[in-house]
Design a protein around this nucleic acid. Structure first.
Lengths: 1293, 338
DNA sequence: ATTTTAAATACTGATATAAGTAATAGAGAATCT
DNA sequence: AGATTCTCTACCGACAATATCAGTATTTAACTT
């Protein structure tokens, strides 16, 4: 073992860790005591009733910069980074059972003092694996004793440790007496009660619970966790089936035993499934029979019944229908025909049961499925004797797979050898030794997923990345290696979850529906716990390394038949070449690693459908997403996703984790769950039309046509002028650009259609998560309701609702809106639709052969869908009876400005964005255009020629983009470009139009400012706050960042809490990327755990829009919750809310109520209070007049101090002193407090000065001083009262 | 009559130099011209046409005219801060001034073909052009890039080089000179030194006497015996050192496209043995080349290769039946269209 | 066996790369003298 | 302290430069006492 730790030291962060200890401790000593900061929390949180604005939890307001939460309670960036790496490595080693190395990692973890109190968690993980391998209780006890007494004396066991001991006692001891004795002891040792021990469901199995309760009667049933109870003690009605089930392991396939209480005839074709899939499956197959039975029991047509009878409910064989020629059951069609609610419910239940299983398969067996397809095609080809030169793609892939597999296995076993130190180390040359050393780094990760899967993943990832990253026939190496690494990691997590789940539940069989539900419930809980416990992500470096290893193996084996021309004989010759080739390309003088795909393979890929590459883990879900319960538990079942998409910012995650389980963001969870629970299906009619268009290969609307290969223009003669050459190059780049954007557009459309096809007739859901501002996005890429018009046109609600009187109206309005006719009153919009009834009918009936009216719409596909819906409706005798599935949108009119107007209280602005009731919708863009024209006219009257030239040219369109982007803080120059784009249509001369644009931009800005005066003051205020915060200094700033005795790095990002309690951390920091060596090349990646200096510019520019977005996100989630709890189906695209036509009126009321509720509180004041708390005691650097009294006294003190110190005083010294002063002031000890009060520092002098210090006196010489961070005063608010919104029907319309 | 040489005093009003550096010591200039043996290279000075690009303060221009009285001496510059200066001091002299941007290819077309103000004679390529000389200062920020393009023009035989092998005297930053003059085996051996080797004879005529002098190839220093001048002679002071190169185009017959591809790619892995480095040339390159080259050669690295060896590899590459499409060798910049 | 010293290795940071500054030009921050 | 030169340039979803070497830090080995 000593040897291991030696080896380990050699190549791991441990050494740096130990190194930094010395310098660290001095820093840690200076930190304020932990108690001092929690007292700064905002009052006591009296949370009553419907609290929309919970107080932010205390941790958020700590003035101490805490990049990580409790388990990351480390405040040194490099240390925390090492910790993350160590954890990741520990996890990997434990999974691969490298006990010794794991133990040495534990030792290094133990040596990190700041982490000491959480060390037991790591130890427990180790203990579990250790116990598993040791198989002897005595040994285990001894080991534990030794470890805790001698090796890790400062570490104390906890209840989980005891749970582990109990579990293994139950497992390894065989006589009742010793089990009882052991367990009794363990229970007595509890630290937080027996219940706490028993709550470790990820340790104890159901069997354990049963034995503890029933057999040994060591604990009472009441002590068990709620979800477990029913499984251990089953109600009478279920006990029979349970009884038979629990013994079924001994008698696996006795037909008699498996006869369930329901009356399904059981055929004897229960295929025992491969062992590793787990017993669950075998049983579920029976479950599927139940599903079929249930479905057949519904009132269906004979045809439908026949469909169901012949449908293979075996999910391993029949997952999603990616087959073009095969028709799956159209569940949606069946569902629609059901008459009674009762039947619908029964159907839903059965479908759900079936889908539960399918979802499980989808997420878990994705790679296997791909492999099976290859194999199938290969064998088919072999059977036909058709292994011709132009092999089918899948045949090739299967061959590659088979050649790659042994290489991977070899490498994996090498890694294992190195890890176990069984390899011969003596007679190795330097090269091999180095390689082995590298294996120490990536080995633990490479051994986690089985080689078969890794091969498949590698192949799939590379194919998927074809033609990405601007490479014409290939991809960027950096992207490839990381993608493969990530995919492996994802697979590992899913596998790990599945394995441990079946471990816990393996003793259980389930037959009856109720019992199954119980198990499901317990499983969900279990999953959540499990997911939470595996919080550690692999370091980017490890991903890149294993990715590169696998890719280089694939490169090595993957060959394609190629054709070439012999330059001498000019004959065609054939040969074999690697399918992938690693090389480089230059871009603006920078090298870029490239993985080229051979042209023949690219052509083949272009011909194939993209089925192979669709990432099956991230499709829409067949069952309701797992509800969000904590920061990383929700969404898919086996694929881990986190509540927010943090941009590699540990800070964001830390703040999120801190509130995750405190209940303050429950509204966020609820809102997301509502979004996730909306069931969708594919609009088959629209799909059919699209499919026709697609297959024609011709360009149509936004679908680009099929294109042949890229043809570049021939090179001009060498001796032509350089400018000609330049033209040629540009031309080619343009061609390539057009080609690849066309290609990617067609790919994108292809993905969408493929996914839509697979989900035809299915019921599915979109799991959501949030971006860092709190806006919601579906997790499934490619195809979702946030997509383009095409995606949206394909989607309808699964549930249908009768239109009713208002529904008819709203459906008509919807169509009008889709045509861009949305500035008129609702009545006029209805009129618009009614005046096109014939067009609608034509469009619906002959979408492609008719007049194609729908194609003229702004959003043609959605318009087509709505036309079809309207057409069906019109067929009804009473249109109000029509059951509609079409989502109807209500869009905020310039939502950002709506929030700004509400914050700023601008009456005129509020009117223009429809916060004020009106009989017509206001159009802010036209209004701004009007204001601009007025300005121009005035200027023209004063003899301004430019104004005269422009004043007739100002249309809504010219200003629209600028007004819109103004909310996002567009700069003067950016806006000029936008306007120039518009004006260049009117003015021929480039120069002139640009000049005019510059001029016009000024007026547009001024007009917007005039209209939204209050809003702009707030925008400025937000910007100023962000600027000051991001340029502020924490008193316990890292000493290392005082590089040249100058300013330290600024480290504080802007952090705030949304009205829903979600903490938001702006992630903008300088990106410090480093080169990391991999097998293929070095790649340039940023370390996600590093904490870098702030990017003040982006912090400042980003804060105003981000703050507004955090508000609109809150508004959306609040509305979602409200709609959800009132039984509405709800979906949203940020500021466009969707529901059934009949519910639009209700939704509108809800969303207005929620908006009012949101803005009733003075959000800006709330924000300032939060800032004042959070950034209390932070310092800023100010420029003050050198001649002022204040400056003089500061200089005086500095002189004095430097005399005492015997050297010139630095900024660092001043900060240090201030830190001391604050420490004293916050001390418990009154004596120290008094000392603090009497202490005078440069900061205290400036702080106590009453002057307005803000950067005055530009002239005259200035001096820099430190001052406490102060934020500017909140600008005055206008008179608009948000309550007026209540009756504004055009607010969202 | 001699042209007055601008003094340092009158240059004081010029504020912006766009990063350009000029040697202002007339004495040094004179010895440079001496060393260059202008009279020997341009036998008939009455036919000599000189194009002076980015002349800036232009005191070397005045000196040149005074010394050699060429048939024509054309200055080309367009930097606002220099315009006034050049205009005023060329007035009434035989110096001509063309107010266009030497960076633009179009400027040359305009000068020669449209305005017909400077017409180089067309000379056969077997000899160096003896009636035309280009003097340029490329010490500014864009300088190095432009210099490399001019070298490429020599390869392409286009731009001014289409009139014959026109010699160029180019002021460049010292770092560029060091790079260009690197020889096989050196650490800094790079594409541009291979280009210079292949298409030109390049001599170091003069360079700043600075500490970084040692970074030059010592053999080159020995052979070329450049004139050394102190840093103080450089106008704007305090900047980086500069060097003067004499670039004499060579006649060549190189398969440029393939050659460019091969050298570019091999030099990325310039210290990796060819055995490995060659593989980055395309799918299966390693197999192809290892079959064609002997083991010892494959142990060499790209930075060790001389011109001939690069040409040999280019030839092999061209004969490769499965060679990749060398015109697809660029990256398609991701651009958003919203 | 322990300490000292030299050699070997690992790690970090700097620099060069290609070769029209893509089309645009002004504000604000960072760096240099 | 003051001028000059970089760096961006509307938010989010989003997606990325690399080889080489000099110089330093650390480890290993070699050697001495």
């Amino acid at each position: 073992m000593l040897r291991y730790s030696r080896l380990y030291k050699k190549s791991n962060p441990l050494c740096t860790l130990v190194r930094t200890q010395r310098s660290l401790s001095s820093v840690t000593k200076l930190l304020k005591p932990a108690t001092s900061m929690s007292s700064t929390a905002l009052g006591s949180s009296s949370r009553g009733g419907d609290m929309v604005f919970p107080r932010p939890p205390q941790v958020l307001l700590s003035t101490k910069f805490e990049p990580f939460d409790r388990s990351y309670a480390v405040n040194n960036a490099s240390e925390s980074k090492d910790l993350m790496n160590l954890w990741s490595l520990l996890e990997a080693c434990l999974h691969s059972r490298y006990i010794d190395r794991a133990f040495s990692i534990l030792k290094s973890l133990y040596s990190v003092k700041s982490h000491r109190s959480y060390f037991i968690d790591d130890y427990n993980k180790f203990l579990m694996v250790y116990a598993d391998t040791q198989r002897d209780m005595k040994e285990l006890d001894k080991k534990l004793f030794e470890d805790l007494q001698i090796t890790f004396p400062a570490c104390e066991y906890n209840d989980k440790t005891l749970a582990i001991l109990i579990h293994y006692a139950l497992k390894y001891l065989d006589d009742t007496h010793s089990i009882t004795k052991h367990c009794q002891t363990y229970f007595k040792m509890n630290t937080n009660g027996v219940r706490s021990i028993l709550s470790n469901v990820e340790v104890l199995t159901i069997q354990d619970y049963k034995r503890l309760v029933n057999d040994f009667e060591l604990v009472d049933l009441q002590e068990l966790p709620a979800e477990i109870k029913p499984l251990v003690h089953t109600p009478k009605s279920l006990s029979d089936s349970l009884e038979s089930v629990s013994t079924s392991e001994e008698q696996p396939s006795s037909p008699a035993m498996q006869k369930p209480s329901t009356e399904i005839s059981l055929d004897s074709d229960i295929n025992p499934l491969p062992k590793d899939v787990g017993e669950l499956l075998a049983v579920d197959t029976i479950g599927m029979k139940v599903v079929r039975h249930t479905l057949l029991g519904l009132s269906l047509t004979e045809q439908q019944k026949e469909q169901i009878r012949s449908f293979n409910f075996d999910t391993t064989a029949n997952l999603l229908n990616f087959d073009k020629d095969k028709e799956n059951i159209d569940f949606f069609a069946i569902y629609k025909t059901l008459k009674t609610e009762e039947e619908k419910e029964r159907f839903a239940k059965a479908l759900d049961e079936f889908n539960q299983e399918r979802q499980h398969q989808l997420e878990n067996r994705a790679t296997d499925a791909a492999k099976e397809r290859w194999k199938h095609d290969f064998e088919e080809a072999k059977a036909r004797g058709d292994l011709s030169i132009q092999k089918k793609l899948n045949v090739k892939l299967w061959e590659w797979y088979n050649q790659m597999l042994p290489l991977v296995k070899e490498e994996v076993s090498r890694c294992s050898q190195v890890m176990e130190n069984t390899s011969e180390t003596d007679d190795l040359n330097a090269q091999e030794r180095r390689q082995n050393k590298a294996r120490m780094d990536y080995g633990p990760y490479l051994t986690l997923v089985n080689p078969e899967k890794m091969c498949v993943i590698t192949i799939l990832e590379l194919l998927k990345l074809n033609s990405t990253g601007g490479i014409i026939e290939g991809m960027r190496t950096a992207r490839a290696v990381i993608s493969v690494g990530k995919a492996i990691e994802m697979e590992f997590r899913a596998e790990q979850l599945l394995k441990s789940e079946s471990r816990v539940f393996k003793d259980i069989n389930k037959k009856s529906h109720e019992f199954k539900m119980l198990v499901q419930n317990a499983r969900a809980t279990f999953r959540s716990m499990k997911i939470e416990s595996s919080k550690i992500l692999w370091p980017q470096e490890a991903r890149a390394k294993i990715g590169s290893i696998l890719i280089s193996m694939l490169i090595h084996v993957a060959k394609v038949r190629v054709e070439g021309v012999d330059p001498v004989t000019n004959e065609k010759i054939h040969g074999e070449a690697p399918a992938f080739s690693h090389g480089y390309q230059y871009h603006n003088g920078s090298k870029l690693g490239v993985l080229k795909i051979h042209r023949t393979l690219v052509h083949q890929l272009n011909g194939e459908r993209l089925v192979a590459a669709v990432q099956p883990q991230l499709l829409p879900m067949l069952v309701k997403p797992r509800p969000w319960k904590s920061w990383n538990s929700g969404g898919y079942y086996y694929t881990q996703s986190s509540l927010i998409r943090s941009k590699d910012s540990p800070e964001q995650v830390a703040y999120l984790k801190a509130v995750s389980d405190t209940g303050v963001i429950d509204k966020v969870y609820q809102g997301l769950n509502v979004l996730g629970e909306t069931a969708w299906t594919i609009n088959r009619r629209v799909f059919d039309v699209m499919s026709d268009v697609w297959n024609s290969g011709k360009p149509f609307l936004e679908i680009p046509g099929i294109q042949d290969k890229l043809v570049l223009t021939p090179q001009p003669p060498r001796e032509s002028d350089p400018s000609v050459h330049r033209e040629w190059k540009l031309k080619n780049k343009e061609l390539a650009n057009a080609f690849s954007s066309n290609r990617s557009a067609r790919c994108d459309a292809n993905y969408k259609l493929e996914i839509a096809r697979a989900f035809l007739g299915e019921k599915f859901y979109f799991p959501h998560n949030l971006d860092f501002r709190g806006r919601a996005y579906p997790l499934s890429p490619h195809f979702n309701h946030l997509g383009n018009d095409m995606s949206r046109g394909l989607l309808i609600f699964w549930e249908g609702k009768k239109l009713g009187p208002t529904g008819v109206k709203w459906l008509k309005v919807h169509l009008s809106n889709l045509f861009g006719f949305d500035k008129a009153s609702l009545e006029d919009r209805v009129g618009f639709t009614e005046s096109h009834i014939e067009d609608i009918k034509d469009s619906a009936q002959n979408p492609l052969d008719g007049n194609g009216w729908w194609k003229q719409a702004d959003k043609p596909w959605q318009a087509l869908a709505t036309c079809i819906e309207l057409n069906e409706m019109l067929k009804m005798e009473n249109p109000e009876e029509y059951v509609s599935h079409q989502p109807v949108h209500q869009d905020g009119t310039c939502n950002g400005l709506q929030h700004y107007a509400a914050l700023g209280g601008d009456i005129e602005g509020a009117t223009q964005v429809n916060l004020v009731p009106s009989d017509r919708p206001q159009d802010v863009y036209s209004h701004v255009a009007k204001l601009v024209v007025a300005r121009l006219e005035k200027a023209a009257r004063n003899g301004d020629e430019t104004a005269g030239l422009l004043k007739d040219k100002i249309k809504r369109k010219v200003v629209k983009q600028t007004v819109m982007t103004n909310v996002y803080g567009v700069t003067y120059i950016g806006a000029t470009h936008q306007i120039d784009k518009q004006l260049s249509n009117v003015f021929e001369d480039h120069k002139q139009s640009y000049e005019l644009s510059k001029y016009l931009t000024k007026h547009v800005f001024a007009s917007v400012r005039e209209l939204f005066e209050g809003a702009h003051l707030i925008q400025d205020w937000l910007g100023e706050c962000a600027k000051r915060i991001s340029k502020s200094i924490r008193v316990d700033v890292d000493e290392k960042s005082f590089k040249n005795g100058n300013k330290p790095d600024f480290m504080s990002s802007v952090i705030w809490t949304t009205p829903l309690g979600l903490p938001i951390v702006q992630p903008y920091r300088e990106n410090c990327k480093k080169q990391v060596a991999t097998n293929l090349q070095t790649v340039f990646i940023s370390d996600p755990f590093a904490v870098n200096p702030i990017n003040a510019r982006r912090q400042k520019a980003g804060f105003p829009p981000n703050f507004i977005h955090s508000l609109d996100a809150s508004h959306m989630l609040l509305s979602a919750v409200e709609c959800g709890s009132n039984g509405l189906d709800f979906a949203a695209v940020h500021d466009s809310y969707w529901t059934h036509a009949c519910d639009v009126d209700k939704m509108n009321v809800f969303l207005r109520e929620q908006f009012i509720k949101l803005h009733e509180v003075d959000l800006i004041e709330r924000l300032k209070n939060e800032f004042d708390q959070r950034y209390k005691n932070y310092l800023q650097i100010l420029k003050i007049d050198k001649k002022s009294d204040l400056a003089r006294s500061v200089m005086e003190l500095r002189k004095q101090l430097s005399k005492d110190l015997g050297r010139p005083i630095t900024l660092a010294d001043e900060i240090y002193m201030e830190k001391k002063r604050i420490q004293l002031l916050e001390s418990e000890d009154p004596e120290e407090q008094a000392k603090g009060k009497s202490m005078v520092t440069t900061v205290s002098i400036v702080g106590s000065s009453q002057d307005n210090l803000i950067e005055k006196s530009k002239d005259g010489s200035c001096t820099l001083v430190l001052a406490p961070l102060t934020l500017p005063q909140i600008p005055p608010k206008g008179d608009f009262d948000v309550k007026e919104l209540k009756n504004s029907k055009y607010f969202f319309s | 009559m001699a042209i007055r040489i601008p003094t340092a005093k009158e240059l004081r009003s010029i504020k912006h130099y766009y990063g350009f550096k000029y040697l202002l010591n007339s004495q040094t200039h004179e010895s440079i011209f001496q060393k260059l043996q202008i009279e020997a290279k341009y036998k008939d000075l009455s036919k000599l046409k000189v194009l002076d690009l980015y002349p800036g303060p232009s005191n070397h221009s005045a000196l040149f005219v005074n010394l050699f009285k060429p048939a024509q001496y054309m200055l080309m510059d367009s930097r606002p801060d220099f315009l006034r200066h050049i205009e005023s001091f060329t007035k009434g002299t035989s110096l001509q001034f063309y107010k266009h941007d030497p960076y633009e290819w179009k400027s040359y077309i305009d000068l020669i073909e449209k305005d017909k103000l400077f017409i180089p004679s067309i000379k056969p390529r077997d000899l160096v052009h003896d009636e035309c000389l280009v003097i340029a200062n490329l010490t500014g920020m864009i300088g190095e890039g432009l210099f490399m393009q001019w070298l490429a023009c020599i390869g392409n035989k286009n731009w001014l080089q289409k009139y014959g092998r026109i010699r160029m005297l180019v002021w460049v930053p010292e770092s560029t000179a060091i790079k260009v003059l690197a020889k096989p085996g050196e650490q800094i051996r790079s594409k541009c030194s291979v280009v210079a080797d292949t298409f030109t004879d390049t001599r170091l005529i003069a360079t700043t006497n600075s500490t970084s002098l040692r970074k030059f190839n010592s053999k080159i220093l020995e052979k070329h015996e450049p004139i050394l001048f102190p840093t103080e002679d450089i106008w704007l002071t305090g900047g980086k050192p500069i060097s003067l190169l004499e670039v004499t185009p060579k006649e060549h017959n190189v398969d440029l496209d393939n050659w460019d591809y091969v050298t570019k790619h091999l030099l990325i892995l310039k210290s990796t043995p060819l055995l490995e480095a060659l593989d980055s040339l395309g799918h299966g390159a390693k197999d192809y080349f290892t079959g064609k080259l002997d083991r010892e050669f494959l142990k060499k690295t790209a930075k060790d290769l001389d011109t001939e060896e690069f040409l040999y590899l280019t030839n092999l590459f061209d004969k490769w039946p499965f060679k990749p499409d060398i015109y697809m060798d660029f990256i398609d910049v991701f651009q958003d269209n919203d």
